[in-house]
Nucleic acid binder design. Structure first.
Lengths: 211, 211, 211, 211
DNA sequence: ACATACGGGACAGCCCGTTACT
DNA sequence: AGTAACGGGCTGTCCCGTATGT
């Protein structure tokens, strides 16, 4: 009885990296859009077609999943949308404007405003568990530090007025985070735009007016 | 308050207003500390001693409870801690500083930083349901408008430099909200203090430097 | 439009006592036959037609259910099959024989030997949790004490030879428990019968052979 | 196979006998302490460091594991702690006392009373599956037979009074098993000691009172 | 107005086995 | 022989809402 169309058996492929990555991706998306508590693992499984065993294997508990999301998706996202632009710009002020502009543009493109992933998770999880709070705080601090460092460099090079770099950086990060919260609540990019405009009027971020 | 000999039957007090108020209070606290999804109605019932039916009587669904919390606790809180101080201060700039100072002081007093109730609920609920988003957006807008109005008044009176009042107000609200998020994540009032200091350096909030 | 066979609405009857009792009954049966860990709450619910909510209401956790079973079913069963017969018999020796005979007869009647409920739960749960162990130990001790007391009375009345009543009682209880374990393993009442016969040969249980 | 500089491959030792033995050992311990149903294979794997496939290789199913435990650990344990002492003693009565004394001493040494492995498994599994019941019954019967045989020999040699050897043996085994159950429930070796004392008062086990 | 009882339907986590892979 | 990935299914628990009772 030859020539059996051997396509019977449900061929399973072992792809640990891929499966894990897809899980983290899906979790990142879902946590950002719906939040941590409002996302059921069942949703993730169904969305991906992965089984409970696979999920359990890679992430014994939901907690482990969100920790991976923070480390492997949220932190890189902040790095990409904020730290890199700031570091690569000519001045911190310019970098901040670039980053704000890019995000505002993106919000305008896509209809729905989901808010900042870091902020969303921070507000929901920071109060719950020290194990969550610590990595979140760390991301905020790296972000802050990157802006502050750039600003200090600018000041040394005469490209920024004297000011407490840490304070200025904190305001920038806070303004962005808060603006995103308002943008999410009002479903409009306007708060972001308003903040972007006003930040150019901040003493510590104004190009030293020569004359 | 008579001598209660009747040890048997659960003494029931009919106190509609009181029960309702206590429910909203407990919900406000729990939603602020643990979040909406992480708070079960069972928790509230147990915390208050009031049980099931009472809650159901006043609030048919959990949704109704959070709406009441927004209307009757969160909005008044914003009114009290931000709108009133700003309106009563001599200038908007002063009012903003007062409000920030008051909150920072409070954070230092109490060990744990729970964050801003409005912000917490906004981030968790704004993306979920239009029914939640609208009242949250409204609170943000009232807050914003109060600051902007005061600023316009200042400008008319020569107590503030010319600037887009809406933009400045948005930055103030955003900076505060974001700073509270960071304060919650880092469990420290420092971000708030940094932002307070920097906001005094914002052009639109500086007292017109007379010659 | 009269005379609607008003059987439409799923009439629910509140019968807390009844529901609770049926749950404990079903649990007692299932725990005795299949054991604690091998019995799923789903089984109980389906067997009774009760819903998860009802179960959760009466017994927040499985632990609470088994504690109720011990207190309200196992202890009374020991009381009924052992303590009462012993106390009511003319002598302890006679009571022991009566109890053994009754159980042996019952085993012969019903085909399947499930073993002693107390023993089954004791072996499975006593090692797990102090909260389980304590009530189990208490039942054993009451059982033991009843036999010992009766024996002491017999000795005072000259109806039993001098012997350490506690020791004799312990042997009786142990022999019965062990015999039931063997009966369950061999699915035969023979071990019980053998023990019954031999216990009559125990010095402390023999009627003082006058001569 | 992307050439990962795979320096951290887990060192694997092929040791079929050893792995199998360690698995059975761990299972024996866990089943004795926590019971069959309360022990997850995951626990065993983690305890041993060996993982999934190894277990599956040696024991396709959990059932096979417990059967091996019965055959290779429980039966030998009964052989060692009961059958050998009885056979080697001068009389059955002496052997029984020796065995009881040894176990009681061991219980006193180690603080925690786990109970008799055979009894624990018997009560939990005998009712579940004929495949489990049979080997358990067999162990009980071998145990019983050893004592009965020794007793018959004693009787033939005039070292024991006439009595139904099977019955006496059954009582001894039952008393021990039951006493261990009580010892586990009360976490005390006392029941065992009491039974040991009383068994010396059993007619069939008393050294023929030389006239 | 309030309290107890209950209905179902999730949810996270676990568990036993099997399959791909080394 | 042994490892890691994976498949599903099930378990105890919780949770929100409603119905019954006082």
């Amino acid at each position: 009885m030859p020539n059996i169309p051997r396509s019977r058996r449900p061929v399973r492929v072992n792809d640990p990296q891929g499966t894990r990555g897809r899980l983290v991706d899906a979790a990142f998306r879902a946590f950002t859009v719906r939040g941590y508590n409002a996302t059921s693992l069942h949703d993730l499984k169904r969305e991906l077609g992965t089984s409970g065993g696979a999920l359990s294997h890679h992430f014994p508990a939901k907690r482990d999943l969100v920790l991976a999301v923070l480390r492997e998706r949220v932190a890189p996202a902040v790095e990409e949308t904020w730290i890199a632009p700031v570091l690569l710009a000519q001045t911190a002020a310019q970098g901040v404007q670039d980053a704000l502009e890019a995000v505002a543009k993106q919000l305008e493109t896509q209809g729905h405003v989901e808010g900042c992933p870091l902020n969303n998770l921070a507000l929901e999880l920071a109060g719950a568990d020290e194990e969550f709070r610590a990595p979140i705080a760390e991301i905020f601090e790296l972000w802050n530090a990157a802006i502050a460092d750039k600003l200090l460099e600018d000041q040394r090079n005469g490209r920024a007025p004297a000011a407490d770099a840490q304070d200025v950086a904190a305001l920038v990060v806070a303004a962005y985070s808060g603006a995103m919260a308002m943008a999410k609540a009002t479903q409009s990019p306007e708060p972001l735009r308003r903040c972007a405009r006003q930040l150019t009027q901040l003493a510590g971020l104004r190009w030293p007016v020569e004359s």
